[in-house]
Design a protein around this nucleic acid. Structure first.
Lengths: 275, 275
DNA sequence: TTGATTTTGGAATTGATGTTTCATTGTGGA
DNA sequence: TCCACAATGAAACATCAATTCCAAAATCAA
């Protein structure tokens, strides 16, 4: 019996396990599922501890490994361990870098602060973002004849990015903002076949709110990105996303909003292409 | 004998080992050095294999662990393992996991992809950003009479954010970009007392490069944010930052650049206030 | 239902592991 | 130089680990 064709890197092993999971007997499939879900446990645990956690007998683990072509459980475990060995960026490397900077430079502290605020904001949005709502918004925007992008002050970079990306992707849009694009009054051309995407955070720019209100009043569907249920944009929107950005020294991150904007942009373009 | 005050996280343990390394006997110090240099070996190896690698007896490892207050070698090894457990998954792993995952919502996959790309970009920049360079850039920008912000296409959202923030903080600036602000030709008003901040990534917008070149030729200091040493901005810049943004489905993140931009903006404002 | 075959659980086994012990070597003080 | 004590190396030990084995259960085909 040869074991020459057994994967020695984790990535390949994962595929193998996923592929064979169905054709394996019940208990072995159970182990397969557990292994894919808890690779760290497999890497560090003992056969006994893993067996208990996966609710099987230790012998089943050995059989599982052998079914995949390994000599035994230890042989398979090696692959799970190699995965951890190869990890590049380590936790403490990051921390020590941060610390080294903080003693020397004030600017490095600022940078770390903003970076952490961004990471936190992204993580938060990940937990909170409603997939169904996202789908609905994409559907609405994909049907729109023209997408009106409204964002002032801090939100303008976001809308201007979307305008650029939509343009590149061949999607008709109008950017409404302080420094350029269409004049605000021209939003009055918008029809119910169009959609307005409004972005605004506390303190809500009155101009943005006014535009959204008038558009909504004239039957133009409004999708908005804002920061709370109390936002004046919420009541006039068909659909609104709540994004709470973390801040550092009074400056709010915009990373999460930007990612949501990118997602909407690309998803709308992909949906359009299908048709 | 109690072991209550023994560190259970790797960071603390490392400090403890480093601190006690000198006062320990020869062989134990040898183990201490080896442990700090090869934490992965300690995490995965057996007492016998580690002992051989470190050129000591297995019993020495046990003594070492006990000298630090652990019950035994296994107890100490647990801490080294916890370190690997806490590590985050690598970008490639997460991305491939993402694609393999359930495709209930296509948009959710996009969102996660962009979020991952942003997190990776931020993490990378954190490791690579040079604190001294940052300080120098802030000093230059703080001394500038007017800051000219040049960014087209994808970089425009960044410069437009900076322009907004500088404006709010009372710092004179001129935004140069396709959709608004000053006309490109007016950069010719810039003097050596001003500073130009240029932002551009592959494929470098020719307009941005031209403006930076002419400014540099007329003695206007240029600070730039770009993506490699081969950037046409690098040779004409007094100082340049390399930011490599991760991408997902061909769309580059901009989060790291944005954070660097925020840092520069706020730091410049703080430095100005001091004077 | 019956018989053949696969799968599973649990105990027995074999090997390796961490730990302890003890004799030996090295070190600093009188 | 001698003594006391710490440090070390090597082997012995007890434990625990992975693996194997076998009987029981489950599955499938006839």
């Amino acid at each position: 019996m040869s074991t020459v064709d057994v994967p020695r890197d984790f990535q390949a092993l994962r595929q193998l396990i996923a592929a064979r999971a169905q054709e394996l007997p019940k208990r072995l499939a159970q182990v397969a599922t557990y292994a894919l879900d808890n690779p760290d446990e497999i890497a560090f645990g003992t056969a006994a501890s893993i067996a208990e956690a996966a609710d099987v007998q230790p012998s089943t683990l050995v059989r599982f490994a052998q079914a995949l072509g390994f000599d035994g459980f230890s042989d398979l475990q090696e692959v799970f361990r190699s995965r951890l060995r190869e990890r590049v960026l380590s936790y403490e490397e990051r921390i020590s870098h941060l610390r080294a900077g903080s003693t020397a430079h004030k600017a490095a502290v600022l940078f770390s602060g903003f970076a952490e605020a961004a990471e936190k904001s992204i993580k938060d949005l990940r937990l909170r973002l409603d997939g169904d709502k996202l789908e609905q918004a994409i559907k609405m925007l994909a049907k729109a004849e023209t997408i009106y992008l409204v964002g002032l002050r801090r939100s303008f970079p976001i809308t201007s990015y979307m305008s650029y990306a939509f343009g590149k992707l061949g999607i008709k849009n109008q950017l409404i903002g302080a420094t350029g694009g269409m004049a605000a009054e021209d939003v009055s051309f918008a029809t119910p076949q169009d959609v307005m995407l409004a972005i605004s955070f506390t303190p809500y720019a009155s101009e943005t709110v006014k535009l959204a209100q008038s558009a909504s009043a004239r039957g133009v569907p409004v999708v908005s990105i804002t920061d709370s249920a109390f936002s004046p944009l919420a009541p006039v929107s068909k659909l609104w996303f709540e994004v709470t950005e973390a801040h550092f020294e009074g400056f709010r991150s915009m990373s999460a909003t930007l990612i949501l904007a990118m997602t909407l942009t690309v998803a709308v373009a992909e949906r359009r292409e299908k048709k």
